[in-house]
Nucleic acid binder design. Sequence first.
RNA 1: GGGCCCGUAGCUCAGCUUGGACAGAGCGGCGGCCUUCUAAGCCGAAGGUCGUGGGUUCAAAUCCCACCGGGCCCGCCA
Length: 524
Amino acid sequence: MDIDGTKFGISKIKGYELASSEAFKRAKIEKRSPMEISQEIVGTLKEHPWVEEAVAINGYVNVKLSPKFYLEYKPELKENGTVAIEYVSVNPNKPWHIGHLRNALTGESLKRIYQAFQYDVVALDYIDDLGLQVAQSYWYWKNYGIKEHERFDWAVGLAYVEAAKLFEEHEKEVREILKEMEEKGISRNFVEKVLWDQLKTAKAYGIFHHMRVFESDIARDLFNKTIELLKEKGFLVYHEEGELKGTWTTRGNRVVIRSDGTATYLGKDIVFQLWKMGFVSGLRFEEREDPTGKVWYSNIKGIEKEINADKVINVIGIEQSLPQQEIAKVIKEIYPEKEYIHVAYQKVRLKDVSFSGRKGTWIGYSADELLEEGIKRIKSKELALSAIKFFILKYTPTKEVIFEWDKALSTEGDSGIYVMYAYVRAGSVLKKAEVNPLLKELNEGDREVAKWFLAWEFYLKKALRYNDPSAIAEYLLELAGAFNSYYGKVKLKNNETGLWVTEQVRKYLKQGMELLGMPIVEEM
RNA sequence: GGGCCCGUAGCUCAGCUUGGACAGAGCGGCGGCCUUCUAAGCCGAAGGUCGUGGGUUCAAAUCCCACCGGGCCCGCCA
């Protein structure tokens, strides 16, 4: 933050909130010593009503802020625009495993972060109902039947492991089924049945979308319309000869339409992304009630809806970076002013194995089992959710997560439970307060906590700018830690300023926890 | 061959995009603290060639170059 044109960060010196190293930078330009300049800055700051004390230490400027500052300062957190965030988009032939959960929690948290900046946010879920995975599952179901299970996503997921083993031998038949799916829509009911049960997991974890789009609804009219337009405007290239003879590709020579006239996955993806930006319209929706609540489902019979996003964010595995880059390039050509962002996340895996739907390595590590185990260990659904969500979101998305039960469900140290505990503790202090909270004077100890009130803006903007909820998790740990330490040293219940600090701590902890989708509890 | 991600304490990670104070947490291990607002907590000590080597700079974990280790991607599959 800036005071009188000098940039400040959080101070490392005890009892000071802000620090600046600008004297070093100016020293270079002005050819004077940092000491001299830092003294000068201190001189000008002393007049400022927000500054209670400013000191120069070895060329650095450290500042104590005045109570007036805390009562007046409001960070600027409003930005404009429409953002479409796509996340989860799990193949509808298996239950969610922990990797899918990472995607879901990241997307849901980003949704909330963008909403905090007052963007218009549309959360989208893409249902690949015409994929090969679904075809394999559907084919297996038709030929071998599927073992009963209380959840259809589980029944199909378990069968898919078997189906995958038979795939090579029966590929021809499966391809036949795939063709029928595309032409006659034979699998839509099957897919919706799986999706319905997958969404029970979404509900349990608090994942809420505004729209669900089925590939089969894009595949026909919208697809052709978009491709024709792209051809017309010269964004696609036709190859008369060579290896790519008869295909339409991007300018980067990635095939969009095969020589047999069918679409590649990349082609379909480009069409969907462009729809989000308003390049074409015509996708229809109807509102339906599903396990997560009311959601707009794509459907040929519904009403036309469009998003016209300025910014499109897709939470997709990092292994898809290359095709994602290609899509970004195409979009950049068409909409230089818009943003296309691939939020790339690494795998969640066990020590030696990564989760795979095909190999069945997810069994025992489904999102449902994780929550179940959490409730068993922590004895509370809310706390189990807090622990799990925090555990997953505290890692930067590009970092691989090695899954271990004890870590995922940890209740001590840098865990979601630690943060919750600080929040509940602050609430308890306020409840038992003997005086009213009132900001009077801030002493060294108060300032150690108050620093983090300023830092909120910094961490929140960082989370937005880098599309990384882990910045929020980090913030929560810092603030909770500062408060717990403060609590250990300072008697609060008859301390007016201390209670004011406690109130603020609660406020910021709550905001942060909400952005991560953690449930808020008042007692534990 | 081209590209992407990761490499920081015994283990798991922050910090790197915008270069600045002695590199921070948690877990594990060691020593303390529950008649006092909730001990799912707090305090203290221990633990580091920031993968390696160069370069830029008053200043490098951070920027640039080269290299090493681990993982991944480069189809008219989806």
